[in-house]
Structure formats: structure tokens, C-alpha cells
Design a protein around this nucleic acid. Structure first.
Lengths: 135, 135
DNA sequence: CAGCATCCCTCACGATACTG
DNA sequence: CAGTATCGTGAGGGATGCTG
């Protein structure tokens, strides 16, 4: 147990084991903190369908403030996950779109999401049991 | 493009696509926030080798305060990722160990870590380019 | 329309001191 | 050894108002 198959660019399949050294754990932790904020995954997920304008994206995500959408998009743009295209019209139009890197990021992130959906029930049960014993 | 193969309990392989609806994105976001704090993945990664005592774990992780290790472990125990075993000796001895659920969580998390290690260079280049243009 | 600037608040996290 | 209790700080995030 404890492996994961991950497709590579060349079409081969990579067999994956747990990171056992500290460096690997740090890299894992860093990317998780990077995408583990409140909005990043929601934004990237919505852009997975195709490019969206600022307010389209805001409506699609739902519940996000204007400030946080701007902040999140700037971060994604800086890291190369998203492109920002300005059309110099009046009123202005700005399109956001996932880069190839952004699409590739979505692959392992989606795998983690799939795991989450499959195991929410087990986590909920563990939580209720714990709270019942300690509450 | 945009798929990921994930092994299941039965030995079959699950073909995975991007989450396209809002519910899936939310579940993904929630688990990412859950494991996206500063220490959770480091602690889980260290426990991947086998059970550890409190101070062994603290030394293995490195840099974590006593308070945060306690907090992180309580959260992991509550969600069913870790078991806590107290030996009523003097001085006391407490062992922490990954549950089956904890080991299973490590699979997609490791996949994301593997992606991170493979793509840090691309992210760094994007960052330098962005900072060069906007700084 | 797509933002920037500002104020404010909560909470994650660290440091320190104490205990069964 | 393995915690609990308390305090202080900074970053993440929301609300509101203004602008090219």
C-alpha cells in the first residue's frame, strides 16, 4: 500500500511512494499552503472550464469579495498558473485563463479532491466519536 | 489531458477528471485548507515511517513549537488520521501512529508533493519574470 | 467593468511559564 | 515526558468607498 500512479508528459506512468525525507515533506507542505488558502482552488477550478472575465469569475465562485479575488488572481498570475489579458476598451474587459501549468496543477489537486469526497463520511464519523468522548 | 489515475481498495484504477461543479470544488478546497496549515503535512509525513513518541516527533519535524505540535496532533486525532496511545508509566509515554485513513490520505497528498518537486523550477521562473515586470 | 486604498477584526502561530 | 495556560503578534480576510 501507499503508492499512487501519476501520468507524465511522455505517457509513461510514475509509481509514487510516500515522501520519507524532510525535503520532500517541505516541498509538499509548501505547495499545500500555497493552494490551501480560502479561494485559490475555487478560482482555479472555475477557470478549468475555460477563460472568464473578472466579474464572471466572481459570480461563478460565489461569496468571494472583490479584494480577495484580485489578490488570489495576482498570486496565481505571479506563479504562472493564470494569464491576465486586458482588452483596452471602454468599459475595460479583462480575461483570466489557466496556463498549461495551471491545468497540470489541477490534476493532483483533483485527485486530492476526489479522495476528500470519498472519505468525508469517515472523517465525520471520527469527529463525532472524538467529540462525544472529549466534549 | 487533465486526468489522473488513482488506485482504489479493490485494485482497480479510477480515471479522474477535473471537478466541474461547485460542490466538488468546495470539497477539494476544504481538504486543502485542512491539510494546508503550517505543520499537518510535516507531522503526517514523519508518522508515515511508523509510530513516534511526542518528543521524537517534535525532533523529527524540527522547528515546531510544543504548542503547535499538540494542536496539530489533536486535530489529526479528531479527524481520525492519527491514534494516540498513553502508557501510564512515570515518566509518561505517549505514542502517535497513523491510522489506515491517515495512510490513505498520504497517497494523494504525496502525489501533490511529487508534482510540487517536479515543477518548482517552472514556478520560480514565472515568479522571477512577474516580479521583473511589476517590481 | 475592473480594479485600488483603507479600516478593522479574527485567528493561526510563536514564546514563555508552569504542572501531573 | 508530555503536556496546559496565557499573552503577544502578524497575516488572512471582509466591508466600504473611490477611480480610470
Amino acid at each position: 500500500m501507499g503508492y499512487c500512479q501519476l501520468p507524465t508528459q511522455g505517457g509513461t506512468v510514475l509509481l509514487l511512494r510516500h515522501p520519507h525525507n524532510t525535503e520532500d515533506c517541505r516541498a509538499t507542505s509548501e505547495i499545500l499552503q500555497r493552494v490551501g488558502d480560502k479561494w485559490t482552488v475555487l478560482v482555479v477550478g472555475k477557470l478549468g472550464h475555460g477563460p472568464l472575465r473578472f466579474n464572471e469569475l466572481r459570480a461563478a465562485v460565489g461569496g468571494i469579495s472583490q479584494k480577495m479575488l484580485t489578490t488570489t488572481l495576482r498570486g496565481l498570475e505571479r506563479d504562472g498558473f493564470v494569464t491576465r489579458t486586458v482588452f483596452p476598451t471602454i468599459p475595460p474587459r479583462v480575461d483570466y485563463e489557466l496556463t498549461e501549468l495551471g491545468h497540470e496543477l489541477l490534476i493532483p489537486v483533483s485527485a486530492l479532491g476526489e479522495w476528500a469526497r470519498r472519505n468525508t463520511q469517515r472523517v465525520r464519523e471520527a469527529r463525532e466519536k472524538f467529540d462525544g468522548m472529549h466534549g
